[in-house]
Simulated assay, not measured.
Amino acid sequence: MPETASATSTLSPAPTVLPVLPAPSVQAERLIGLGVHEIAGLSAAELRAFAAAADASGAGGEGVLLAVHPDRAPASALAPLLRRDDKPGFVVVDMADVDLFTPIDTVALPDAPLYLLTGVDRGDRMANWSPDEALPALAAEERTPLLLTEGIHWVLQQPAALERNRCFMTIGSRLRKANGAVDARTPAVWISNGTGRDGRERRNAPKVGWCWAGNRHTWLGFASATGRQVGGRTAG
Score class of each variant (00 low, 15 high):
residue 94 D to E: 15
residue 140 A to I: 05
residue 183 D to F: 04
residue 24 P to C: 10
residue 56 A to L: 06
residue 61 G to Y: 08
residue 233 R to W: 05
residue 28 A to C: 08
residue 181 A to Y: 00
residue 115 Y to M: 07
residue 102 T to E: 11
residue 219 W to I: 03
residue 187 P to Q: 10
residue 233 R to K: 13
residue 146 L to I: 09
residue 232 G to F: 08
residue 89 G to C: 14
residue 108 A to G: 04
residue 97 D to A: 10
residue 60 G to R: 05
residue 235 A to E: 06
residue 228 R to Y: 07
residue 227 G to N: 02
residue 190 W to C: 09
residue 131 P to L: 00
residue 62 E to Y: 00
residue 20 V to N: 02
residue 39 I to V: 15
residue 124 D to E: 08
residue 205 A to G: 03
residue 118 T to H: 11
residue 136 P to M: 14
residue 222 F to A: 12
residue 198 D to H: 11
residue 131 P to F: 07
residue 232 G to A: 09
residue 99 D to C: 07
residue 150 E to N: 07
residue 96 A to F: 01
residue 131 P to H: 09
residue 230 V to T: 15
residue 176 R to I: 15
residue 66 L to V: 01
residue 55 D to S: 05
residue 207 K to F: 06
residue 132 D to T: 03
residue 121 D to F: 02
residue 129 W to G: 00
residue 202 R to Y: 06
residue 93 V to E: 06
residue 119 G to T: 11
residue 226 T to M: 08
residue 235 A to R: 02
residue 179 N to G: 12
residue 228 R to K: 11
residue 145 P to L: 05
residue 224 S to F: 01
residue 166 R to M: 01
residue 123 G to L: 04
residue 45 A to M: 14
residue 153 H to C: 13
residue 112 A to N: 10
residue 187 P to H: 13
residue 84 R to V: 04
residue 106 T to L: 08
residue 83 R to K: 14
residue 189 V to S: 01
residue 105 D to K: 09
residue 84 R to I: 03
residue 79 A to T: 11
residue 104 I to C: 07
residue 124 D to W: 03
residue 229 Q to C: 02
residue 114 L to S: 05
residue 4 T to R: 12
residue 56 A to R: 10
residue 209 G to C: 04
residue 70 P to E: 13
residue 12 S to C: 11
residue 186 T to R: 14
residue 104 I to H: 02
residue 169 M to D: 00
residue 218 T to M: 09
residue 223 A to Q: 11
residue 89 G to H: 03
residue 59 A to W: 04
residue 227 G to S: 10
residue 206 P to E: 03
residue 202 R to N: 15
residue 148 L to C: 03
residue 34 L to F: 06
residue 76 S to Q: 09
residue 56 A to Q: 12
residue 210 W to E: 06
residue 118 T to S: 14
residue 80 P to C: 13
residue 13 P to C: 02
residue 190 W to D: 12
residue 89 G to M: 07
residue 212 W to D: 13
residue 28 A to W: 03
residue 24 P to V: 09
residue 158 Q to E: 07
residue 38 E to C: 09
residue 111 D to Y: 04
residue 139 A to E: 14
residue 117 L to E: 08
residue 59 A to I: 05
residue 61 G to A: 12
residue 96 A to V: 12
residue 236 G to L: 14
residue 207 K to P: 00
residue 128 N to Y: 14
residue 200 R to L: 11
residue 13 P to Y: 02
residue 105 D to P: 00
residue 62 E to K: 10
residue 205 A to E: 08
residue 137 A to L: 08
residue 173 S to W: 01
residue 203 R to V: 07
residue 56 A to K: 10
residue 133 E to Y: 04
residue 34 L to I: 10
residue 138 L to C: 02
residue 135 L to I: 10
residue 211 C to E: 13
residue 49 A to I: 06
residue 231 G to Q: 08
residue 119 G to I: 12
residue 27 Q to K: 04
residue 102 T to S: 11
residue 186 T to I: 10
residue 159 P to S: 05
residue 182 V to T: 15
residue 82 L to R: 01
residue 197 R to E: 14
